[in-house]
Design a protein around this nucleic acid. Structure first.
Ligand SMILES: [Mn+2]
Ligand SMILES: [Mn+2]
Ligand SMILES: [Zn+2]
Ligand SMILES: [Zn+2]
Lengths: 136, 136
DNA sequence: TTAAACTTTGCAATTGAGTTGCAGTATATT
DNA sequence: AATATACTGCAACTCAATTGCAAAGTTTAA
């Protein structure tokens, strides 16, 4: 990503505080979706609860999306440019059961899913599990 | 479901102990996928860890499949007849953000997902979130 | 400027689902 | 019956997530 953290926060209408910039930069530097613990380890002088609250704010303001990959730790990834987290913006994720790497499969938009009558889709958490290219 | 718990356990090669029969019957009685806590509340005289271990055994032996719907509690549902939890047997799930009901969308098999080179699919956890027919 | 109002942060404590060790009980095998 | 194996209940523990609160920082309105 070449966008600067501050620009993203401005676009997404999030107050660019010190912690938020650090957290967002950290996410931008790592293509791999990061857990709260990952970020905590990476930003050794920033408090966990502050990081946690930044992530919650980011999610709410659609700066990041979260991935429940079943590992027990929620992962966070910066939303691709133009993403508004609407159903048509969503993509699959892949969780490698061997190396525990979580991938955003950005090239695979999820298809239109035929829901039962009167079911309304808002979001989705689509995780394929298996072995990644490095592990298979 | 009309299958008796004992029959399913026999087919899936699981020793039909007292707790296991109780847990499986409980799941069969409820179409809604149940959490460990749900089952614990339903089977007031059965210990949590015993239920937990039954569910782990069931999952391993493909008696049930688990659903990580993001609610913080894993849900368990009896596998439909003939299901072997292979990729082609998988289906979408729907989590209602208002009433917290988790649905197995058995009529919607998931499509073939084009993964990157050398990625091998083993399992999947596909959860659509939104409002169910009763809540929209 | 200054004071009040609001926002953000760090720390400590709590929550709660999930998991495990272990000893006692039940069941199967010899 | 004696032994081995499988199952169960209880209590304790793990650990990611979350919260309360007071201090620090920032904005706004006298
Ligand atoms: Mn993603
Ligand atoms: Mn299901
Ligand atoms: Zn891998
Ligand atoms: Zn609902």
């Amino acid at each position: 990503m070449m966008e600067k953290a501050e620009e993203i926060l401005k676009i997404k209408d999030v107050n660019p505080t010190a912690v938020r910039i650090l957290v967002l930069r950290y996410l931008l530097e790592h293509l791999k979706p990061q857990s709260l613990k990952d970020i905590e380890k990476g930003l050794m002088h920033t408090d966990r609860s502050s990081i946690f609250r930044s992530l919650k704010t980011f999610e709410e303001k659609k700066v990041v999306h979260s991935i429940e990959d079943g590992s027990g730790m929620i992962k966070y990834a910066v939303c691709p440019t133009g993403c508004n987290c609407d159903p048509q913006d969503l993509h699959y994720h892949f969780y490698c059961t061997k190396c525990s790497y979580t991938y955003c499969l950005l090239d695979n938009p999820i298809p239109i899913i035929k829901l039962p009558q009167n079911f309304k889709m808002q979001r989705a958490n689509m995780v394929v599990k298996g072995l990644c290219n490095k592990c298979s």
